[in-house]
Computed example of a mutant assay.
Amino acid sequence: MVSPEAEAVPTSALIRLVEARWFRTLVIVVIVINAIVLGLLTSQTVRAAGGGLVGRGLVIVDMAALSFFIGEIGIKLVAYRQRFFRDPWNWFDLVVVIIALVPASDSLKVLRALRVLRVLRLVAAIPAMRLVVSGLFRALPGMGSAALLLLLIHYVFAVIGVQLYGGTVYGGYGDTGYDYFADLGRALYTLFQIMTLESWSHGIVRPIMDVHPNSWIFFVLFVVISAFAALNLFIGILVNAMDSAKDEQESHMSAEEVADPAQRAILDELRSIRAEVRDLRAQLDERQDQAPAARKAPSRTGNETENTGKAVKAGNAAKSRKTAKKNSSA
Rank of each mutant, 00 (worst) to 15 (best):
Asp247Glu: 14
Met129Glu: 01
Arg81Phe: 01
Ala125Pro: 01
Ile273Glu: 09
Ile28Asn: 03
Phe192Val: 05
Val46Ala: 09
Asn34Arg: 06
Arg16Ile: 01
Leu53Met: 15
Val123Ile: 15
Leu41Met: 15
Val27Ile: 14
Val169Glu: 01
Val95Asp: 03
Leu17Cys: 03
Glu304Gln: 10
Leu221Trp: 09
Leu270Ile: 05
Lys296Gly: 10
Asp268Leu: 12
Asp268Trp: 15
Arg118Pro: 06
Asn34Glu: 13
Arg278Val: 12
Asp247Pro: 02
Ile237Glu: 04
Leu191Lys: 00
Gly302Leu: 10
Lys296Arg: 15
Gly203Ile: 01
Gln82Glu: 10
Val102Phe: 09
Arg130Gln: 07
Ser299Leu: 15
Ala330Glu: 06
Ile75Gln: 00
Phe92Gln: 00
Ser3Ala: 09
Pro213Leu: 02
Leu280Val: 14
Gly203Cys: 08
Ala317Tyr: 11
Arg112Trp: 08
Gln163Lys: 15
Ala139Gln: 03
Ile217Trp: 04
Lys322Leu: 12
Ile28Trp: 00
Ile15Glu: 01
Leu191Gly: 01
Asp179Gly: 05
Arg321Cys: 12
Gly161Glu: 01
Val169His: 04
Ala128His: 04
Ala294Ile: 10
Leu267Ile: 06
Lys326Tyr: 06
Arg186Ile: 12
Ile204Tyr: 01
Leu140Val: 12
Val27Ser: 05
Ala259Thr: 02
Leu280Trp: 07
Pro207Ser: 13
